[in-house]
Design a protein around this nucleic acid. Structure first.
Lengths: 89, 89
DNA sequence: TCGTTATTTAGATAGTTATCTAAATATTTA
DNA sequence: TAAATATTTAGATAACTATCTAAATAACGA
């Protein structure tokens, strides 16, 4: 849970997730959408990977990143559990 | 969204939310559950308040903190939107 | 009003993080 | 094999954060 919330606590990383929601992308394609150096984006991708929010597979010269919704579902449940149990007898 | 994810990115604050899920508590009652100084807990409560995850109302000598699920619902939706739109045509 | 209890504010510090540039690794193509 | 492209790793730095102690504010009760 720590790695997950840490990963989500950054607007760049949240935007990356939203980009990958629509389609898989290479590191370079992701990097193109930001005014941030490629090494910095690589670092963000690493943090998202550690949280298991994304996975990357090399395809030749590129690495193809895709979103992993399993952990997001766990996170959504974390919220729903708090919401549902609140003020319940 | 920034304040929300920042607030959630700390195990102490997440535990406070889970405590308030069951019942309203004073700052002192919250503080008793942690090996952390009262000023530090007060600081955590402030961050949760800024994110509108909790609210505090003075009741005489005490301040009674309660959870606010509205923002949690917005957060849950943020996750569900990503989950549901992924891999959709 | 004075002392006690509850909580916050102020100021300091150690640890963490986002970012950068430079260099390294991996793959393809000529 | 050498050059070009894609990505990561290393090392440095400025900004942020969690924590502490000491002091301030607020409310109660004798």
């Amino acid at each position: 849970m720590n790695a997950l919330f840490k990963a989500l606590n950054d607007p760049t990383r949240r935007k990356i997730l939203q980009m990958l929601r629509d389609q898989d992308l290479s590191a370079g394609e992701i990097s193109d959408q930001f005014d941030i150096s490629k090494p910095s984006i690589s670092h963000h991708l690493d943090i998202l990977k550690r949280a298991q929010l994304i996975s990357g597979e090399r395809e030749g010269q590129f690495i193809r990143y895709s979103i992993n919704t399993t952990v997001l579902e766990e996170a959504a449940n974390w919220f729903l559990e708090i919401i549902n149990q609140s003020s319940d007898p």
